[in-house]
Amino acid sequence: MQQAAGVDKVGSVVCVGTGMTLGSHISPLSRSYIEQADVVFVLVADGITEQWVSQMNSDVRSLQSYYQPDLSRMLSYQQMVAAMLTEVRLGKKVVGAFYGHPGVFAWVPHQAIAKAKAEGFAAHMEPGISAEDCLIADLAIDPGTYGCQHFETSQFMFYKRTIDPAAYLILWQVGVAGDRSLAKLSTGEPYRQLLLEVLAEHYSLTHQVILYEAVTLPIQQPRITRLPLAELVNAELDGKTTLVIPPATKMIPNQAILDKLAALQAYEQNNQQPE
């Protein structure tokens, strides 16, 4: 049991990232939190990694069982948070071990920490190497070069967003594009056609895009499939697949601002005090 300084209750929760690849990415601190916890809840991308984490502590509980066929994932997420908070309230040192970075495209860790803090328990997050980090390395792209927009695919479809086709566009969970029930583990061709309809407002259907999947086991290679946008409809996608759309247009200079900046620079140079 543990009581951290500045909090008024015994019990705590730390959400740690295991990184994407078994053995390669977990930080020494995240591993130490797992090893020293009273109870560890684990949610990772494959069963072998789950087994690997299970061997780091004598009380490791999988959160996978909360996913049920045809049950809204939102309900599953709420049950996961509730399970973690129950142990925190019992005064235990709880760790949530999540694949990748526990704060990136991950509702459960954020909610567990927020709820625990609201109830007066110590709670924080330790970062991990995310799928985005692996994507940048494996595809050799720098998000700073042209800029980069990230969206969860379904959310991207549900809301009107401002897309900049001069930047990278990265759509996560493309395998469940357009699922409003949150109960599907994949959506099919009609849903992807609608995604294509949204994307076609900004991109040519012949534009080359990339389907990416990070390595979770060190015996694998990353999936990097290049294809024309139109072929997305019939492509093989699952929960791990990410759609990467490279820039399709050139960046347009903002001449009005560039002129004002030049004038400002000239003004500063003309008004410099002599030393």
């Binding site: 949610l43 990772v44 991308a45 494959d46 069963g47 072998i48 789950e50 087994q51 996978q64 996913y67 994932r73 939102m74 997420y77 999540f98 694949y99 495209f105 991950a106 509702w107 459960v108 969860e152 695919t153 379904s154 959310q155 549900f158 809301y159 996560w172 969970q173 469940v176 699922d179 409003r180 949150l182 583990l185 086991l217 015996i219 694998q220 290679q221 929960g239 791990k240």
Partner: peptide, 28 residues
């Protein structure tokens, strides 16, 4: 391991290969 067959490896380790790894809702 030679064949980089993670599905087979998961079976041999008596573990689930197909896992749900989505932990983010799509709605607002």
């Amino acid at each position: 391991i030679f064949e980089k067959d993670d599905a087979m490896l998961a079976r041999l380790l008596d573990t689930t290969n197909k896992i749900v790894c989505m932990i983010f809702p799509a709605e607002e």
